[in-house]
Design a binder for these strands. Structure first.
Length: 570
RNA sequence: GGCGUUAUAGCUCAGUUGGUUAGAGCGAACGACUCAUAAUCGUUAGGUCGGUGGUUCAAGUCCACCUAACGCCA
């Protein structure tokens, strides 16, 4: 049995994610996890919320809540939405967990021991009113270039000129509006990634099977300009993981926390410990997935993420792991996605443009969204969501091809033979041809899923559904029954078995519909086929069934219009 | 300004290391069927593969330049 560790990029805590975020990591990761489980492999699928950093603090302040409380609430909101989309995490953790605190501090200690941490003194803007250092983007003022009065410390949005906070005329805090600012000297820890450059380079080179999108981004960061830059891993904030060297205090770093991008990926590991604890197991069962000296040598580790996260997963996080000198599992396969656009532009959290996870589930059940998103996943380039395309895909693929197939065969059988699988007849040429073709398609479906070719998997699955309709159309049991009832019984029996086979094969994409079909046949257990011909004999003559309710309702033109208007933004 | 990605039928996209008449789904037209969510099945039409030039016996597939969209960086 293979062992697969799967992680999805961890969503940031401040707010509800949109469908672009969902399709870029969590959803395809779920598809892969469900497939591997169905195949009988041992899978640990982890995700978490990324809770530290300034945006979380500010969002909490805006909500008028202590940041810890805010994060706890948003975590449960996101967890609920994940359940709503049927994301089958073995554990949905939190980067603010005690486990991640301890592990992040442990890594920092190990990196310091290895001589990979450097203390750097730098100047930063401090707000006396807010009693905090302000990141560049939280300082506003008048642009010296164009006079725009809401320019940010890193860039003027109006004329796009890059700025330093000290360039701004009449700088003020974006948090409070206070102008009582001063430049202070502060000391921070830097991770000396540059020392690890050759090691990282060689490691990336060894990944010849990675997508070009992934390796080209990594290579660019390694070789562009002065090469891989050292990175600050601490911040002057209250909310976060206190800077410690392992379990010991870190002189000079009192009151500082680790930078969110340092501790967030470490949560992938800590999350396994959270999972173990939540399931009443000791930590060895978590280490068994992560430490190659403690049982993880046979684990295949696959990460899913949007393209913006690639540098952190190919360079920063591996630098942390390699630099520690400890035998932690490194990623084996890294699947990255491009962006999903919304009706001609980008999804935008700040502008409320596009569809957010909570809104989507208010309109339609998870399977509708899962199908469209996965069958249109932005794998090779950015892709585009339009309501028209969504309507057509759902109506055609789900309602007409799959849903109607289940409906027509069960209703036909019920009216001609009663609500149980009919007996009699033997396979002929058409049946052999069907099985032959299904074997071929099934093989190719598995190969695409294995390779995490999401769109191609969806395409193949759709073709499998269509072959059911083709078969019925060709043998026409409604005609056969007039002259040869035995033969019609066989055709109908095969049709019913096809419906159940489709349920099993569709489960990774459409978990709910799959269950509905299985339940109609009184067969709760979803079984992945060993052999197509064999699984087409699952339902024996006499097996009772129910005609399932309508699996997928069609989306009307009126609904499409209404939703389009509702989600246009502004 | 630098770098990168993309540009293939009306729409959404496939096109392995360059090799016979460029593919799929949707949409369109026509036909078949009537069990079914007015569903299904079949046939046909449709593209000078963004532009120009080059390498080659042969280029959508490699190279150069140009154009457009998007993204990243300074």
């Amino acid at each position: 049995m293979e062992r697969h560790l799967i992680t999805s990029a961890i969503p940031y805590i401040n707010g509800i994610k949109h469908l672009g975020n969902l399709v870029g990591s969590q959803l395809p990761a779920d598809l892969y996890a469900r497939y591997l489980r169905a195949k009988g492999h041992e899978v640990l699928f982890l995700c978490a919320t990324d809770e530290h950093g300034t945006p979380a603090e500010l969002a909490a302040a805006k909500a008028g809540k202590p940041v810890a409380e805010y994060c706890a609430e948003m975590h449960s909101v996101q967890a609920e939405l994940a359940r709503g989309f049927r994301l089958s995490f073995d554990h949905f953790g939190r980067s603010s967990s005690p486990q991640n605190h301890a592990l992040t501090q442990h890594f920092a200690g190990k990196l310091a021991d290895a001589g990979l941490i450097e203390e750097v003194s730098e100047k930063q803007v401090y707000s006396n009113t807010d009693k905090r250092f302000l990141p560049d983007r939280y300082i506003e003022g008048t642009c010296p270039n164009c006079g725009y009065d809401k320019a940010r410390g890193d860039q003027c949005e109006n004329c796009t000129k890059q700025l330093d906070p000290t360039d701004l005329i009449e700088p003020r805090s974006a948090v409070s509006g206070s102008t009582d600012l001063e430049v202070r000297e502060t000391r921070h820890l830097y991770l000396r990634q540059s020392v690890l450059k050759d090691q990282l380079d060689a490691w990336i080179d060894s990944k010849s099977d990675w997508p070009v999108l992934t390796t080209s981004i990594a290579k660019k960061w390694l070789h562009d300009g002065n090469g891989l830059q050292d990175r600050g891993i601490t911040r002057d904030l209250d909310w976060g993981i206190p800077v410690r060297k392992g379990k010991d205090a870190w002189p000079g770093m009192e009151g500082k926390v680790f930078y969110v991008w340092f501790d967030a990926p470490i949560e992938y590991i800590a999350c396994a410990s959270e999972w173990a604890e939540a399931n009443g197991q000791d930590d060895a069962s978590a280490q068994r997935w992560w430490r190659t000296d403690q049982g993880a040598e046979d684990v295949t580790y696959t990460q899913f993420m949007g393209k913006d996260n690639v540098p952190f997963h190919t360079l920063s996080f591996p630098a942390t792991i390699l630099g520690s000198g400890e035998p932690w599992k490194l990623v084996d396969q890294l699947k990255s996605f491009n962006y999903l656009n919304y009706d001609g532009g980008q999804f935008s959290t700040s502008q409320g443009r596009g569809i957010f996870m909570d809104q989507a589930l208010e309109l339609l059940p998870a399977d509708y969204w899962r199908w469209w998103l996965l069958s249109h996943a932005p794998e090779s380039s950015d892709s585009e969501f339009t309501w028209e395309n969504f309507q057509v895909s759902v109506n055609k693929d789900l309602a007409d091809v799959l849903g109607n197939f289940v409906s027509r065969i069960t209703k036909f059988c019920r009216s001609k033979f009663g609500a149980e699988v009919p007996e009699g007849g033997t396979y002929g040429a058409e049946e052999e041809a069907l099985i032959q073709s299904l074997r071929q398609r099934f093989k190719s479906y598995e190969e695409h899923l294995e390779a995490i070719e999401v769109r191609k998997s969806a395409q193949e699955l759709r073709a499998i559904w269509a072959s059911g309709n083709e078969y019925l159309q060709t043998v026409a049991p409604w005609t056969t029954i007039k002259s040869d009832p035995e033969k019609a019984a066989m055709q109908t029996r095969l049709g019913l078995n096809l419906a159940l086979l489709f349920a099993d094969l569709s489960a990774p994409f459409l978990p709910d519909a799959s269950k509905t079909i299985s339940a109609a046949f009184g067969n709760q257990e979803n079984a992945w086929p060993e052999d197509v011909a064999l699984s087409l004999e699952t339902l024996a003559p006499g097996h009772k069934f129910d005609v399932p309710e309508v699996l997928f309702a069609k989306i009307s033109d009126e609904q499409t219009e209404e939703w389009k208007a509702k989600f246009s933004g502004q």
